[in-house]
Write a protein that binds this DNA or RNA. Sequence first.
RNA 1: UGGCAUGUAGCUCAGCGGCAGAGCACCGCCCUGACACGGCGGGGGUCGUGGGUUCAAAUCCCUCCGUGCCAACCA
Length: 870
Amino acid sequence: MTPPAPELPQFYDPHAAFQRYASAWEASGVNSPAADAPGEPYCIVIPPPNVTGSLHMGHALNNTLQDVLIRYKRMDGFNAVWIPGTDHAGIATQWIVEKQLRAKGIDRRELGREKFLACVWEWKEQSGGTIVSQLKRLGVSCDWSRERFTLDEGLSAAVRENFVRLVEEGLIYRATRLINWDPVGMTAISDLEVETEENVQGELWSFAYPLSDGSGEIVVATTRPETMLGDTAIAVHPDDPRYQHLIGRTVRHPILGREIPIVGDAILVDPAFGSGAVKVTPAHDFNDHAVGKRHDLPLLTIFTLDGRVNAEGGPYEGLDRFDARTKIKADLEAMGLGRGSKLNVMTLPRSQRSGAVVEPMVSTQWFVRTKPLAEPALAAVEQGLTTFHPRQWENTYFAWLRDIQDWCISRQLWWGHRIPAWHCAACGETTVSRVDVTACGTCGSANVAQDEDVLDTWFSSALWPFSTLGWPARTPELAKWYPNAVLITGFDIIFFWVARMMMAGLHNLGSVPFHDVYIHGLVRDENGDKMSKTKGNVVDPLVAIEKHGTDAFRITLTSLAGLGRDLSWSDKHVEVWTRFQNKVWQSFRFLRMHVNEKPAPAPLGPMDRWILARAGVAVQNVRSAIDSYRFNDATAELHRFVWYELCDWYLEFSKAALYGEDEAEKAAARHTLWTVYSAVARLLHPFMPFLAEELWQNLPGSEGSVVRAPFPRPDDFPPADDTLAEVALLQETIVAVRRVRAEKEVSPRVPLQLVSQGLGALGRYHRVLDDLAKVTVCTGEKPDACATVVVEGIEGWIPLAGVLDLDKERERLAAQITKAQKSVDFLRNLLGNEGFVGKAKPELLASRRAELEGDEGRLATLTAALAALG
RNA sequence: UGGCAUGUAGCUCAGCGGCAGAGCACCGCCCUGACACGGCGGGGGUCGUGGGUUCAAAUCCCUCCGUGCCAACCA
């Protein structure tokens, strides 16, 4: 006799397990494979969280899914690595530190660039680690030895290399253009960083421009009266009879006195809208800018960089944009030029970061010529080199890339990658270089100064899948792990990030950065509302982990991650998995009561073979679910198998053996339990790693850590054999008998097939016996509707009349039979038709035959059932 | 205005040509030896609307309605 195993605690303690295993795994090096380690490559790079950030539910979901995949692939023998890191997040970070300094009464400009950057670095050092430690609390198995930061030395070199290359190829250029300006952040921003605020109640105000010759006036309407200071034309539709004769003439600016031409422009002007005449401000409106180009109008910038009226505004100089609006309106009204106003629902462009209303401004900036980069990125997805999951996101991706605009990449910030370009004060030329420049590349003058601006933070993020692997150096890591296997991210950054990584990867390395892109939804609250601080419905993942434990937290998120849907987080969902966790634990304790050493293989009974075959099916289902990113299906399959097959059936059946006298049966049950739980621990590991390890460590005879154990394969288990059908029948029988006992209606499909030998065999089982003992079994002459049973050698029957509405059942069956009959006739005709057979492909015919057989079988079953009902 | 989703049990969702499903909630019985964080049984649905295709539609096609997101326009 082996000594009894030490008893397991009554309840699983997820926090203790986390403490026990998390850092031990990291120290073991299992997460840090060498590039030349054996196994097919499988690499995921983390979407780098901002250093400003703290972990929110979106991160939790995103990283849990990555961890599920990486743990699965690691167990499956891949050389799997998950590279973590953080993003310097240019504007966002600078914004925070500036705010902190302002609170102390310090302006960054007083401080100077160098000192300010020192402050940002200091802040990054102390709080940049927060997000990392929070990630670790999720139990993620990143390779922390490869952690990167977008501003570290290697990545900065990658950024320079990419920038200089694109300049050399003519794909980056510097130009003066109308761009989106953030007057609060005081920087240019890209189109993507402009967000629109919907349904703003605004005012559409009309006023009159007097014709220069005094012969009348022309009325225009605007939501931005202050921009009239920069008007350089009035546009009308060239075919509009009201204004046609005015084209070519001028109006006089009522405030500034300028003469302004009236032009005809069919593209901008809709004669049916408003007065049919439009004021044109080419320096502060994108549409007007286009008109200006068409008609060669002067660009008149009227605002300063912080959104005040400049010297061009004459009497309004120094006024804020919005104050100027009020005053100009009032002044024009006073001059008798106001022509009424109406309410107007509009959308306001706001800066994503500062929230300021964006001001279009003419400015000199650096741009990426995106068209040539977008074409290969489009083609790669069209050709299936990269696949989105779910597929429909490819449409979004295509739409944006097909209509892509040049990308403004320079930012008037200090925190970020400074543009590697040096302007010469002597000759005015610009030198772009991978190394710092001390002399002008054109004239040789030493009077050069580096461009003051930094790059858009997404410019460095675009390189992330390969800059983290050492590019531009040709490292073993790059050779092994590029392209990455999969990118997991949210739909909100398909344009910002995914598309740009595709472009950068294809351009710099000639192949796609990843084979799959999994797009997950948004984590919402239990009412389906977006989580937001103002609503106060934000769930802090760390609080949830404290409350429920890492395992339950992770598998809950995973179970909610269906393809193409947002997730609704609620404690009710977590409860399901907390209970699942307990179910696994309690059933494992049962195993430990009966198994305290690794059992030797033994001849197996039918129930043993049944559960092993079912385990094989579950393994197959879990695998194919993960392989196709159906995370919710994977967890549902685990839940179904463990609870409804393993615990509800097998464990109950095994008691007959384990509490009985037959040593051979006991040996079979022990071996089966051990085998199945060995698989369960490994199946659970990607989802509930700490629970899985706790099982593994307490499974007698298991070796090492579950982290390094192989993920179960379907062929680890015996295939289905004839006993499976028998067992299924026994189970149906038991269910039917329980229903009879409950005096409930019995579905005719099952009890009419009751097999006496089956029940006889079942009589030996624990809880089943209990059920049967309470069933009234009759003997003697059998009525038409009954279930035949044999209990402890006595054949009898269970009457069904009285608990069945026989008339209703007959009616229902007859309807089904009519339907089935039609199906069978149809298929038979189809197969009997020579012409059809001649043309049909063999496999199609085979499937049709199979269908027919299925239908005939069903028809037969139904007919038999009807006959039994009389 | 355009595009993409989405509408299935009270709630959260799965199913996507072949007998309408799960979890939670609800009702009844049971603290039996792994588990009351449990067991057994049960009730509950015109699958948003109207048409069409099919032997057969929740599932495919069209119409409309509701909801969400993205993009564009907004003088």
